[in-house]
Amino acid sequence: MQFSKKYITEMKEKIYNKIHHSFLSSQLELPEIDNDKLYLLLSILRFQDLPRAQFETYATSVMFIQIALDTHDLVKNDDEYMQHKKRQLTVLAGDFYSGLYYYSLSHLPNIQMIRNLAEGIKIVNENKIRIYNKEVHSFEEYMSCMMKKETAIYQKLARYFHHPISELLSSNWLHINQIIKEKEKYMNYIKENDLLEYSNLKGEKLNRFVGKQIDAYIDSMYSQLIEMVKEPSLIEDFLELIAFNKNNVNSTFIS
């Protein structure tokens, strides 16, 4: 592995220290940091051989965005699910984290990076709305929206550095892992919205059918990834992580 567990934990602590606000911390739980996304982010930056200070500023800035977006995802429509005050602070915490991304990159300074990442945030939210509002009408369209929603930030970062392997990892690798980890969510959305036109199937048969389609999709994304990286040894640790995530998903999934 490129990064030790200890290093990843240290990076998380640095990020948590930078987003600390005494009142928020007393009222809200610490935001979660997705291990895959952090690992990918650090790898993209490692490929660039950046000075330590720059490396850490880029890493924390991108994570501020991710945490901001994830925090806003926690805002529910109904106070039954979320206490009023908690909802208020969740909105503001997301805004605060998102301000920190702009703040840290403007002090680096890197205006172009601010722009690239803002484009990513725009794409993420456009796709969040399309999915939430059920504006997707096919399996392919849904997968494409989910990929953009989950990976746009990292793709924009990789694009900034003009690093094709990073771009590919940001799209295919991250997307594959997200599907593996959240397969149930994907299956439910596809079934609820009849995206595979399976009206004659029900129950277990339907689950198996949708599961197989998703697995086939993962396989095609995986093949594309292997095919496009000329030297697979460069991404060996990433392929190991896919295998690791596959082994760790809930065993109740049907595949």
Partner: peptide, 18 residues
């Protein structure tokens, strides 16, 4: 609803920064 408000606000903010 709240969800649409969150995504719309974040989208507009991203446009502003762009």
């Amino acid at each position: 609803d709240n969800k649409i408000s969150m995504y719309t606000g974040d989208y507009i903010l991203a446009r502003a920064l762009e």
